[in-house]
Computed example of a mutant assay.
Amino acid sequence: MHESDHEIVQLFKRQQYPLSETLTEMLNEHFSHQTERRGCGFTQATRLLAEFINFSRDPRELNDLKLFKDYEDKTLKMLLKQSKLSDWHNLDHNQEAMALAQHNTLACPADLTPDIQFQAQLRQLAQQAQKEESKLLMHMIADIILPKSSAGTGLVELAALAEKPKVGSCPMAENFFLKIAHGRILRKGAVNIIVDQQHQPLLLEKLNMGDDHSCISLKPLLMNGVCVPAGSLFSVDYDSSAIQNKTANQNLPGFVIPYSEIPGFWYLRLTTLAVSLENRARTFSTHFQQQIANDLFSPETTLLQQLADIASAQVRI
C-alpha cells in the first residue's frame, strides 16, 4: 500500500480485497486517464462503473467480481454450478448462504464463510471513508455486489436501455447544464423535466443544446440495484411523439414527462456537479481544470440545487 493511493484504493487493500488494476490506476490518477477526452481518473472510474450499472445483476454469473483483483471465486462457482446457491449477491443477508456455511462438510467442502464475511465488510466499508467522493464511489461499488431494491430504499428505479444510445460523456458534457443552471438557454434550446409519480423532478433533459437526450439526475436514483447519486449524467432514448402524458413547462420551452413514460435510460458517469463545491477540484482534478480552462460557465460556483430549482419551477401544481 502506498501513501499516494487514493483513499478508496487504500480501504479495499486493508480489507485484503484490492480493486482491479484498471480501477486502481484510474483512482490513483495515472496520467493515461488525465487526457482531454477522458478528463481524469476519477471520472474514468465512474465511467467504468457504468459497465456494471447498466446491466441487471445476474444471480448466477460472477461478472460483477471483476471489480476486484484476483477474487477467489471457486466456492461460489461450484455452488452455483451445483444449483445449491440461487444468488451470490447479498450473501450476508441470505439465509440459504448462511445454511450452506453452517453445514460445510467433507462431503460438500464448500466454505462460504469468507464470501459472506467479505460482503458483510463491504456493506460497512464506505463508513470508514473520510472524503465525500470516496463515500459516493464506494457506495456504488458496494451496491453492485449488494444490490438494493426500490422497496428497501424508497428510490425510483429507472429502467435500463438494452444498448447505449449515441450520446457522449466527454469532460465538457456539463457545459450546457451549467448554463441552464444560470437561466441561460440557447434560442432553439429546450429542457424536459422528468418527474416521479408525485410530480417531483428526477432528471433534467436538454434538447437542441449539444447532444440531445442527455440528462442530469437531480435526485439519487436506482438502476439495476445500484443507487446512482444525484448529479449523474444519463442518456435516454425515446420517441417524443409517443409520449402521451406530458404537459408544457411553466416558463421554459419543453415538457414535464413522467419517468414511467420513458422506456429506458443509460448511466454514463458522474458529473462535477455531483460533488460539493469545496471538494470538486480535489475530486475531479484535471477534468475540473479543463472545464475552467475552456471557460465553462462557473463550474467552480454552480450548485446542482440551481438545476433542481429550475426544474421544480417548470412543474404546474
Results as ranks from 00 to 15, higher is better:
residue 160 A to E: 07
residue 208 N to K: 14
residue 136 L to H: 12
residue 94 N to L: 05
residue 104 N to M: 11
residue 106 L to I: 13
residue 178 L to T: 07
residue 157 E to F: 06
residue 192 N to E: 03
residue 202 L to W: 05
residue 92 D to L: 04
residue 199 H to V: 12
residue 112 L to H: 02
residue 167 V to E: 01
residue 149 S to N: 09
residue 151 A to E: 15
residue 206 K to N: 10
residue 206 K to C: 03
residue 102 Q to V: 13
residue 166 K to I: 13
residue 185 I to F: 03
residue 171 P to Y: 06
residue 110 A to M: 08
residue 159 A to R: 13
residue 155 L to S: 06
residue 198 Q to G: 00
residue 127 Q to E: 12
residue 192 N to D: 15
residue 121 Q to Y: 08
residue 139 H to S: 04
residue 104 N to G: 03
residue 163 E to Q: 09
residue 103 H to F: 14
residue 163 E to G: 01
residue 195 V to F: 08
residue 87 D to H: 01
residue 195 V to K: 02
residue 92 D to N: 14
residue 197 Q to G: 06
residue 119 Q to M: 15
residue 102 Q to E: 14
residue 104 N to C: 13
residue 196 D to N: 11
residue 146 L to N: 13
residue 89 H to I: 02
residue 104 N to F: 12
residue 87 D to G: 00
residue 193 I to C: 05
residue 154 G to E: 05
residue 95 Q to E: 13
residue 139 H to L: 08
residue 100 L to Y: 10
residue 182 H to F: 15
residue 86 S to H: 08
residue 100 L to T: 03
residue 165 P to M: 03
residue 103 H to P: 03
residue 96 E to N: 11
residue 197 Q to T: 08
residue 114 P to L: 07
residue 178 L to G: 05
residue 200 Q to W: 02
residue 146 L to P: 09
residue 131 K to S: 05
residue 151 A to C: 06
residue 172 M to P: 00
residue 168 G to S: 14
residue 188 K to V: 06
residue 185 I to T: 02
residue 144 I to E: 01
residue 167 V to D: 01
residue 93 H to T: 11
residue 129 A to N: 05
residue 169 S to A: 14
residue 157 E to Q: 09
residue 166 K to S: 13
residue 160 A to H: 13
residue 109 P to G: 08
residue 193 I to E: 04
residue 116 I to S: 01
residue 209 M to Y: 03
residue 119 Q to D: 08
residue 179 K to E: 09
residue 103 H to W: 06
residue 197 Q to M: 05
residue 138 M to C: 11
